[in-house]
Structure formats: C-alpha cells, structure tokens
Design a protein around this nucleic acid. Structure first.
Length: 599
DNA sequence: GCCGTTTTCGGCCCGACTGTTTTCAGTCG
C-alpha cells in the first residue's frame, strides 16, 4: 500500500466515525494524520520498515498500529468494525455538497439511504421536506449537490486554471468599488492542483461590490450570498475549466493583511500561527491581531473554564493591515505563501533560517525544448529568438530520440545533421548559445536508446522513461539507476512519469534514485509543464536535502509553452529550492564549466 | 486519538452563511 492509499483509508475511517457521531477531536486526529501521510515525500513502507511511523506528525500509538496492520495485512480491524456498524458507502455521500455527517447519518437511520440513486429517489418522493428541520430548500440543495458531485470530484491543474484566474483578477481590479485584490488559497500557494478560487478584495462599499460581482457574465450560479461573502460557480472558460467554484470575500482595507494570511492558508499553517498567538495572549483571526486584555489566564491543564473564551470582549487590535503584521505579532519574519504548509517553515522562520526561494528571473535558460525536427511546432531559430526575448543566455534543443514512431524521433544521422545546423545558427546569434541536446529514451533494461559514441557528440543528454511504465518497483528503480549511471547522461527528465489527474507516477523508489543521482552527479529535472510538475515539490525538497542539483525546464513543444516556466519555479519554491540548487540559474560560462563534471 | 519549553490530563482554530427556526444546528472553508 502506498501513501495515498493509506491516507484514503484513514480519511474513510474519519468519515465513518463522523457519521457514527464519535468525538470530533478523535475524528480530526485521523484526518490530520491522513493529511500528513498524503504529503510525505518518503514512502510510508520505508518509514514502517525503519520502525519510525510514530515520527510522522499526528501519528501516535493507535494510528501507527492501524498503519502497521494495513501494510502487513492490507486491512485493519478498526475500519472493519466501523464497516460492521456503518455502511462504507456512506462516506461517499459526504462528498455531496451540503451533506455532512449528521445529515448522512439521519438519511441512513430514517430511510436506509446508502447510495446516490436511492437518495435521488427519496427526494423525488418529497418525503423529506415534510420532516422537522427539513424543507423545500433542503431537497433542492441536495439535488443540486448530486448534480455537481461528479463535476467537482477532480481538482484542476494549476496551469489549466491559471490564465483564467489571472484574467478574472485583472477584470475585477478594474471594477468600481474594488481597491486591493488577491486570489488566495491554494492558488496563491501555487499548489499543483486547485480546488476553487478564493478571491479577496477590499472595498469601501462591500454591498455594491458584491452585487456587481454576482452579475458578472463569468458567473454561472450564485450558491450563497451574504454581506461580506459570496460563493459562486464560474462559467466554463475557453480552456475547458468547467464550472470552477469561487469564493469572494470583501474586507475593510485595515483587515486586508490578516484576511490575506487567513485565506491563503494552508489550514495547518494557520492553526500553528494561531496557536503561537495564543501563547502570547493574542487572538489572530481574519480581521487582525488582537491583544487579550483584562482576562484571567487560562492555564493549559487547569480545570476548564467553561465559556471563558467566548466572554472575551476586551480585545485591543494591534495589527492586520499588512500580512507581515501577522508574522511580526508572533515574532516571525515573512514566510512566502508557497511554503506555508506547516512542513517546517515555522521552525525555520523561528531560527531565522528560511530558504531564499528561487525566483523566475533567476532562470537564465531553458534546457529541455522540442523543435520541429521532432514533435515540436517551431524551428530552432524561432525558439532561439523567443528565448532571447525572454532574457535567456542559452537554451538546449532536446528533440526526441525514441523507438516510438509517433514523435518523429531523431536517428544518429539526423542528430549529426542537427548538431551542424545548431553550430551554424550559433554563429549568427549574438550573446546567446544553443546547446545541442537530445531527449533520449531509457530502454526497458535501463540501457540508453542511443549508442555512447553518438551521446558523446551531444552537449546535453536528457534521458527519460517514455515506455514500459508498468514495471515492478524494483525493475523500474533498477532501470533508471542503470540509466543515470551512464556517464553521458546529464539530466534525468520527469523522474516519476506522472501526468496530473491522468496517470499516476510509475512505481519507483524515488529516494534510491535521488541517492544515485547524488553519487553519479546526475541532474534531476523539475519538468515545468503543468500536467507534469515532476519532480513534485516534496521530491524536489528531498533531492535538495541530498545535495542533488536540479534543472527547471519547460519541455516546450511550442513557443507558448515557454511561459510554463512559472509553474516549474512555483513547484521548486514549494520544495524550498534556492537559486544555488538549480543549474539553469548559472551564467553560460558557469554552466559550460559545470557540465564537464560528470565522468 | 494526539500532544506536551506550565508534559500523562485537558485541550484540540473559528467565523460566515443557510435553512429552519425564533435561537440554533449543520455545513463549509
């Protein structure tokens, strides 16, 4: 069982306990552990074999025991006994918007509802609305929830939603009544997938602002509308972004910083910051930082002082206009949004040891590009001119060399021809250099598709897996290790082969690959194409910790794809990557020197 | 169930909105 499977089971346990009506904090403990495991870079089976399960934050005695059972037997007693009391299918009903644990439990107890079709039928009979606490609206809302259920199952890849979100932001910026605006949430943290858009604005007239917003042509449906908050579904965009959900929140200018921090998250980062505030007798919420005055100290461990917290009225506001006010209040420097995941950034900030995250402008060239010699759309010269316009000093043309016919790969004689062509173009260009490169397939047995005598003539060899994805983990790991042991291989492309929302990463022991990359001085790629983002952020961080150099490359097949660099940089930043970790931040001369190091 | 720089018990983030109610529970983020 892998990390995701274990996390899913823990989440299911939490859902079923929720429906059963167990203690909320116990349920949250399971959800917290599930989340921690989902975000682990290391494979949980390895952690288990080292007997270090309890070192995962949020995993204690009981949950470690559950995980152990799951790994050893593929099942666990706790889930089994829950399933005996509550049908497992009920946890799926909770994915329907508007249905939480209490309603699902009620529907099951009263009507034995366990599936979506049964629920639809029940609503059709109008038995629900006659019951105490349910009405016409409840029926309608559940029905709408069912219709949206499938549509919202998947999160949207960042790159798919990005242009759409930016356009909406620019449009809102020009709206009357809008002062400051920012899209917060996972979008601002630049997660690889986005569930919805959290739009934060300041306005002197929130009511008019909201009325204006809900009438925009981009809005398909208004789900909820209040004085300061509105939830809508956006219309399909030109690029298939069907019905993204958006929350718009209006705050006063003096609250902007606090709200920005609050709505950017992540949730567990925020909880941590609030806890630190509480230790300093501060209350931190989306309206600002408040000092608690004239109030008896609540000692942890002292007899509980029921209701004491809710009676706090003497709050003195000490900040919140700017985001840094929040950090300053708890004695921290500003933490960039991309690393606000409660994955050590708060501890690093406390020690004044935050990474100086790489920036897009640090990138001096693109080292994974396809021209019309293979499956790209543009000529080498066109690409070079565009790269030069972007301010780059160099690029590498890395067309395919592959047994796969569809990508029009280069054979040795075309490679030699291309090298000559690049030499000629280089003579024409000023202050710019084109590396002759290749993206060559790693064969099933780990050998390289091209002979070494050809590879030696190429400036930059990028090797990648493009076929036989379904090997066992041992075979795949061995295959890739053998490939990077080849002294002519400079870069390992998209090391896990995943396609976001489409294809899982192939089975591979990524920490073994990272260790071997360190030993053989092979560079690992962060492929910036938004459907790949591979290495992902946790793996990039693991590579950095093992002193492996990285390259951020677009894998562009057209000029427009060069813009995807930004998503690669985002991913690197989420992985705590600094300029010095990335080879295409080097100047041309530095890079030329650097590339001689292997072999 | 987890956690602990007041550490083995007591606390665990918290506010907005909806639908139904007439003071609040449920859901969401």
């Amino acid at each position: 069982m892998d990390n995701l499977e274990i996390a899913n089971i823990l989440n299911q346990i939490a859902d079923l306990m929720d429906i059963k009506g167990e203690n909320t904090f116990k349920i949250n403990a399971y959800r917290k552990a599930a989340r921690a495991i989902e975000e682990l870079a290391e494979n949980i089976n390895e952690i288990y074999s080292k007997d270090k399960l309890k070192e995962i934050p949020g995993v204690g005695e009981s949950i470690a025991e559950d995980i152990k059972e799951l790994i050893e037997k593929g099942k666990c007693q706790r889930l089994k006994s829950l399933k005996e009391k509550i049908p497992a299918k009920l946890s799926e009903l909770m994915d329907i918007k508007g249905l939480g644990p209490k309603k699902v439990a009620f529907l099951y107890k009263k009507f034995k509802i366990t599936t979506v079709p049964q629920l639809k039928k029940l609503i059709g009979s109008h038995k629900l609305k006659k019951l105490f606490g349910w009405g016409e609206k409840s029926e309608q809302n559940i029905l709408e929830g069912i219709n949206l259920y499938k549509r919202f199952k998947e999160r949207f890849p960042l790159g798919q939603i990005y242009p759409y979100a930016i356009a909406l932001k620019e449009k809102l910026k020009k709206m009357p009544f809008v002062e400051q605006i920012e899209i917060c949430g996972s979008f601002r943290r630049r997660k690889e997938t986005i569930g919805d858009l959290d739009i934060l604005v300041t306005s002197k007239n929130p009511k008019k602002m909201i009325d204006f917003f809900v009438n925009l042509p981009e809005i398909e449906k208004v789900n909820a509308k209040g004085a300061t908050k509105v939830n809508v579904i956006l219309k399909q965009g030109a690029r298939r972004q069907n019905g993204v959900e958006a929350d718009l929140r209006v705050v006063k200018p003096e609250n902007f910083g606090a709200a920005l921090h609050y709505f950017t998250g992540s949730k567990s980062h925020n909880i941590q910051i609030r806890k630190m505030g509480m230790e300093r007798r501060l209350r931190i919420n989306e309206y600002g930082v408040f000092k608690i005055k004239n109030h008896p100290v609540i000692r942890p461990g002292a007899p509980s002082n029921d209701g004491a917290k809710s009676k706090i009225k003497n709050l003195l506001r000490i900040g919140g206009r700017e985001e840094k006010d929040i950090f300053r209040a708890v004695g921290l420097p500003f933490i960039p949004p991309e690393i606000r995941e409660n994955e050590g950034e708060i501890e690093a900030a406390q020690k004044n040891n935050l990474p100086h995250l790489i920036k897009e402008k640090d990138i001096k060239g693109d080292l994974h590009l396809h021209s019309n010699w293979s499956d790209g759309e543009n000529s080498i010269l066109e690409i070079a001119k565009t790269c030069q316009k972007r301010g780059y000093q160099y690029m590498a043309i890395t067309d395919h060399s592959s047994p796969l016919g569809i990508i029009n790969g280069l054979n040795p004689s075309r490679i030699l021809k291309q090298i000559e062509t690049i030499k000629k173009i280089n003579k024409k260009l000023r202050n710019f250099y084109i590396f002759s490169g290749i993206e060559v397939d790693i064969n099933k047995d780990g050998s390289i598709f091209l002979p070494n005598k050809i590879l030696k003539k190429i400036d930059l060899v990028v090797a990648g897996v493009h076929s036989s994805f379904r090997l066992s983990k041992e075979q795949m790991t061995k295959r890739v290790i053998k490939a990077i042991q080849n002294l002519n291989v400079d870069i390992l492309a998209h090391p896990t082969g995943r396609l976001i929302n489409k294809r899982e990463p192939y089975e591979i022991d990524i920490s073994a690959i990272i260790k071997e990359a360190q030993r053989t001085k092979t560079i690992l790629e962060i492929n910036a194409f938004w459907s790949r983002l591979d290495l992902n952020a946790p793996n990039a961080r693991l590579a950095k910790e093992n002193e492996v150099k990285l390259v951020i490359s677009t894998d562009a097949h057209s000029l427009n794809h060069l813009n995807y660099l930004t998503f690669g940089v985002d991913t690197a930043r989420r992985g705590w990557i600094e300029k010095k970790d990335v080879i295409n931040t080097l100047s041309l001369n530095e890079l030329l020197k650097f590339l001689k190091r292997k072999g």
